[in-house]
Measured scan of single mutants.
Amino acid sequence: TEEFVRLWREAVRHNQTLHWNGTDFIPGDEWAEEFARREEEKL
């Protein structure tokens, strides 16, 4: 979602874990980066 992408970019900028829907998205984590890339492509 647009909100997820916005929060993810913020988390990456501050190198912080994003807690989203009970899942931890960690900047630099391969799975999280791939998920975020797919979400961005949907926008």
Results as ranks from 00 to 15, higher is better:
9 R>V: 11
31 W>E: 07
14 H>E: 11
13 R>C: 14
28 G>H: 03
19 H>R: 11
17 T>I: 15
7 L>G: 04
11 A>C: 13
19 H>A: 05
32 A>E: 01
23 T>H: 15
16 Q>H: 13
29 D>K: 03
32 A>H: 02
35 F>I: 07
35 F>E: 03
27 P>I: 05
14 H>A: 14
19 H>P: 02
25 F>T: 01
36 A>F: 12
2 E>D: 12
18 L>W: 01
9 R>Y: 14
34 E>R: 09
5 V>H: 04
38 R>H: 12
14 H>S: 13
42 K>W: 09
25 F>V: 02
7 L>D: 05
20 W>V: 04
22 G>I: 04
29 D>T: 11
39 E>S: 12
34 E>M: 09
40 E>P: 04
1 T>V: 13
6 R>I: 08
20 W>K: 00
38 R>S: 10
9 R>E: 13
24 D>Q: 11
18 L>T: 01
36 A>D: 02
38 R>P: 03
24 D>M: 11
9 R>M: 12
10 E>Q: 08
43 L>R: 06
17 T>Q: 05
26 I>S: 10
33 E>S: 04
19 H>F: 08
34 E>Y: 06
9 R>A: 13
28 G>F: 04
34 E>V: 06
2 E>I: 12
3 E>N: 09
36 A>W: 07
43 L>D: 04
28 G>C: 12
42 K>P: 01
34 E>G: 08
37 R>N: 06
12 V>E: 04
29 D>W: 04
41 E>S: 13
43 L>Y: 10
10 E>M: 06
10 E>H: 10
31 W>R: 08
32 A>V: 02
2 E>H: 13
4 F>Q: 00
28 G>S: 03
43 L>W: 10
25 F>L: 10
6 R>T: 08
11 A>M: 02
26 I>P: 05
12 V>L: 09
38 R>L: 11
5 V>G: 03
41 E>F: 11
30 E>D: 13
36 A>M: 08
9 R>G: 10
30 E>G: 11
42 K>H: 06
40 E>G: 07
13 R>W: 10
27 P>L: 03
21 N>L: 14
33 E>H: 10
17 T>P: 13
23 T>F: 15
29 D>L: 05
16 Q>E: 11
42 K>Q: 07
41 E>V: 11
26 I>T: 15
6 R>D: 09
9 R>T: 09
6 R>A: 10
27 P>F: 02
17 T>C: 05
24 D>R: 06
5 V>K: 02
6 R>C: 15
10 E>K: 06
15 N>K: 11
37 R>C: 12
